[in-house]
Design a protein around this nucleic acid. Structure first.
Length: 271
DNA sequence: CCGGACGCCTGTCGGC
DNA sequence: TGCCGACAGGCGTCCG
C-alpha cells in the first residue's frame, strides 16, 4: 500500500504523539510478518524513551535512547494512535504502550510489513545499506539519474521503481510521474535523453511533494494515524483510470502490465 | 552485473 | 446467493 508520501504522512502524524515518550510496554500478538518480530522486544522496549521518528525510503525509524525500531508497511500496513487498551481487531499485530496513556498500534492484514530492531543508537541495518537517494533531496537530480541509466535496457517504469536508483517511488507515483514527464512507461532507460531525465526528475519531486501535501493517496484502505484518508486520489491523472479520457488530450488511457505491475499511460502524450 | 519471475499473505471485487 | 480466479499501494531472493 504505502509509497513514500503515505509513509511520510504517517511519520508526521505519529511523531508529535511519540516524541519524548517513555515506552511502558510492547504488546505483541502476531510475530509472523515478512521477518519474525524479535520476541526480545517485549523486554527491550519498556523503559526506552523515544527521541524522534525518521523516514528513510519507505521505512520508518523510531529512534529511542537504546536503539531504533525499524518499520515497513509492506502492502497493507498502517499505524494508529489510540488510547491504551483499545480492544484489538484482527490483524492488529502489536501495540506500543506509551506513558501518555496512548499507544501506537500496527495493523497489517497481508503481513508483508516488517518490525525489526536496531540495537544501538546511530547504528544502521542491512536493509538500509544499498538504498539510492531520497527523491526529495538534492542528491536526486537529472545528472545522477541519467548516468545510472546508461546501458540499462530495463523499462523506465521499473528503473524508477528500483530502490537502488531512487527510493520511495511505487506503482502509483511511477505512473503519475511518467505521465507528467511525457515518457512512455516501457521505454528503455538507456534510450531517454538527459533533457527528458530533467523533466522526469522534476515530475517525481513534484508528484511526491503534492501527494505529501494532500496526506497521501487513499485508494481503498490507507488511513492516517487518526483514521483520516489521504486526498491525493482526486488528483491522479492516469493511475487506475484505464479507458477514461486523458486529462490533457482526451484519448483513452491505457493499461499495460510492465514488470508484473499494472501501468497506466496515455499513448498520445507519452512516448 | 543485469533483467525477469516468484513468493510471501489476506481481502475484495467482478463474472458466471 | 455462492464460488473462483484475478488482482492489490512492496520487495528480497533466485535463476539464467
Amino acid at each position: 500500500m504505502p509509497e513514500l508520501p503515505e509513509v511520510e504522512t504517517m511519520r508526521r502524524g505519529i511523531q508529535p504523539h511519540l516524541q519524548n515518550q517513555r515506552i511502558l510496554g510492547f504488546d505483541l500478538r502476531e510475530h509472523r510478518l515478512r521477518w519474525p518480530i524479535p520476541e526480545s522486544l517485549r523486554r527491550q522496549l519498556p523503559g526506552c524513551v523515544i527521541r524522534k521518528v525518521r523516514r528513510r525510503a519507505k521505512y520508518l525509524l523510531i529512534d529511542t535512547d537504546q536503539g531504533s525500531l525499524l518499520l515497513h508497511m509492506g502492502m497493507s500496513g498502517s499505524l494508529r494512535i489510540l488510547p491504551n487498551r483499545t480492544p484489538a481487531m484482527a490483524h492488529d499485530h502489536w501495540d506500543l504502550q506509551l506513558a501518555s496513556g496512548q499507544c501506537l498500534r500496527f495493523r497489517d492484514p497481508r503481513r508483508f510489513g516488517a518490525t525489526l530492531w536496531i540495537d544501538s543508537p546511530g547504528n544502521s541495518h542491512p536493509l538500509l545499506d544499498k538504498l539510492g537517494p531520497e527523491p526529495l533531496s538534492d542528491e536526486f537530480h537529472a545528472g545522477q539519474l541519467f548516468e545510472k541509466s546508461r546501458g540499462r535496457k530495463v523499462a523506465i517504469k521499473n528503473f524508477i521503481m528500483n530502490s537502488r536508483i531512487v527510493v520511495g517511488v511505487g506503482n502509483i507515483y511511477a505512473s503519475e510521474s511518467l505521465f507528467m514527464a511525457g515518457i512512455h512507461p516501457s521505454r528503455q532507460a538507456q534510450r531517454i535523453s538527459k533533457k527528458r531525465y530533467a523533466a522526469l526528475t522534476q515530475a517525481i519531486k513534484e508528484v511526491l511533494q503534492k501527494a505529501i501535501e494532500q496526506g497521501g493517496t487513499t485508494l481503498r484502505d490507507f488511513q492516517q494515524q487518526d483514521g483520516q484518508p489521504g486526498y491525493f486520489a482526486q488528483q491522479l491523472k492516469v493511475y487506475g483510470r484505464d479507458g477514461k479520457a486523458c486529462p490533457v488530450c482526451g484519448q483513452a488511457i491505457r493499461k499495460q502490465v510492465i514488470g508484473q505491475r499494472s501501468s497506466y499511460y496515455c499513448a498520445a502524450c507519452q512516448r
